[in-house]
């Protein structure tokens, strides 16, 4: 196993640990993307992120991968810190495998964490907007009803 693969493996494992006990096995092992969408999303997008962090940081690939991860974790009962903590998990994974985290990578990880936080906020905002939209729609029925009262 190459060092990069080892790091990825550890990163995925660390991220899986944020899910309740008893879930990590299933999320980690079941490879059918439709039977295990959460595990699939984690694996696919952490892989992309690691490639980019080690490579050129192509925003066209980083942004959607980060979005998919954060979008999912934004609705899974995590606190904001827990939701984006997985980014820092990489630092530990690298440390465990290589013994040290190169400065350049550390900086990139920090940047990614900040991006993740932005993304988290925009997902939460979207959730509130969607809620507000539904409430508005409901209020319209109510207004209609009351407007018609004699």
């Amino acid at each position: 196993m190459s060092a990069e693969q080892a790091i990825l493996q550890r990163w995925i494992e660390r991220t899986l640990k944020s899910y309740p006990d008893g879930m990590a096995g299933f999320l980690g092992e079941e490879r059918d993307p439709f039977r295990n969408p959460v595990g699939h999303t984690l694996r696919e997008n952490l892989t992309t992120l690691l490639q980019e962090l080690m490579g050129t940081m192509d925003q066209k690939r980083v942004a959607p991968a980060l979005d998919a991860l954060v979008r999912m974790r934004a609705v899974q009962n995590f606190s904001p810190a827990e939701a984006v903590r997985f980014v820092f998990g990489l630092r530990q994974a690298v440390f465990e495998v290589s013994g040290a985290v190169p400065d350049s990578l550390a900086t990139r990880i920090d940047e990614l964490a900040l991006m993740a936080f932005d993304q988290y906020m925009s997902c939460r905002e979207q959730i509130f907007e969607l809620r507000a939209k539904e409430i508005r729609r409901r209020a319209q029925y109510a207004a209609f009803e009351e407007g018609e009262e004699p």
Binding site: G22, G25, F26
Partner: peptide, 8 residues
Amino acid sequence: FRDPAVRY
């Protein structure tokens, strides 16, 4: 024993 969900 092995499957965490079933063990749970």
